[in-house]
Design a protein around this nucleic acid. Structure first.
Lengths: 201, 201
DNA sequence: CGATAAGATGAGTAAATGCTCAGGTTCTAC
DNA sequence: GTAGAACCTGAGCATTTACTCATCTTATCG
């Protein structure tokens, strides 16, 4: 096991420090991007020594991993909530709710989302946020099977593959870089509409 | 002008070296990604001294810029060809031709495309390959205005915004990371269909 | 040929980065 | 109170990176 030198904080003092470090990391990430997110810089920003940082994080990536894990958890929670709410509603309303939930979640985790999308080594958007994509794909498969039962399995796979990319990409763009003259709600409507049409037509 | 220390090669010898450097850079980029694409590594791979490299390229970015410029030029040429061919054909055939051309071009410039999408600092896919996106947007606007003249200007803007993201994202994914069990031509059909529908419906 | 420009070299520099460790402080439990 | 654990510090090491320059070689042309 312990391939990492990471220790778990046990006293309140150190638990607070871990939080400080993660907050500082988010700030650095947000303002300067992943490439500039060095351990020295994070320690500096957190007003903590590098040594302390390395007591609780085995290496640089573990810090980012923790940020990603936390963001993913929250997004997943909001997404599954949206899926539950969607199940009781007419198809289009449900899909729209999902898209809106995803956009909102990504906005609330801008720093991490941006880093994942723009600057992470190895990983087109397919490999980004894999947990989220899996959950989304599961819902999409169910939805498509219901709305378009005439499609073959291979056909379904192809459409889901495209729908995943389109959903993530569109939601990311709406959340992170929408030009102010375009209305957010309307863009969400359009995406939901295209997805519903593209999956079943 | 000369904010860069770059010299232009005048003898055959040095022109060949510049090519060697660019080829080596592509190889490094392809095998290890943008972050590992250091000047020392490129010089090593090209079997050329760092000093020589810096005689013809002001800094690291200029090397990548040259790769990008060359790739962009070729992709642009293929794209404008496809647009010309599209103009004589029925709408759906034209759109399909464009999508196919883009996928093919991106495949032929895998290393650069991958670097641009995955690892370049600052730039979601909207800002990637801006020249290409501009040309594509121009065509799309024309197409949509013809096929769906009833749409307001704002409505058109919103749809083009989404269509650009979807087109680039889908083409990149089809070109760079399509799972082998999904048929490329069929995916292209689906994308073209969704675009046509999404733009006018 | 001989002079000058173009080309090529690679050890070396300065800065940045990831990470360590010897040494000190604070907390906890008996 | 005191031993021992948990905690914290920051100078500094090893490595990597972008980039320079003194020095040498090759081409051009009158």
């Amino acid at each position: 096991m312990a391939t990492s030198r990471r220790r778990a904080p046990v006293q309140e003092r150190s638990r607070a420090m871990v939080e400080q470090i993660l907050e500082a990391a988010t700030r650095v990430l947000s303002s300067s991007g992943y490439a500039q997110m060095s351990t020295n810089r994070i320690a500096d920003e957190a007003e903590v020594s590098v040594g302390s940082l390395y007591r609780y994080f085995g290496d640089k990536e573990e810090i980012f991993d923790e940020l990603r894990a936390r963001a993913t958890d929250e997004i997943m929670r909001e997404l599954t909530d949206a899926i539950v709410r969607a199940s009781g509603q007419p198809p289009m309303v449900g899909v729209r709710g999902l898209v809106a939930a995803l956009v909102g979640s990504l906005q609330r985790h801008e720093a991490v989302a941006r880093a994942l999308v723009n600057e992470m080594p190895m990983g087109t958007q397919a490999n980004v946020l894999p947990e989220i994509e899996r959950t989304l794909a599961q819902f999409t498969r169910m939805y498509a099977a219901q709305q378009a039962p005439h499609l073959s399995a291979a056909e379904l796979d192809a459409r889901i593959y495209l729908a995943m990319g389109i959903t993530l990409n569109s939601c990311l763009r709406i959340a992170l870089e929408r030009p102010p003259e375009l209305d957010e709600d309307h863009l969400i409507d359009l995406v939901a509409g295209m997805l519903a049409l593209g999956l079943s037509a």
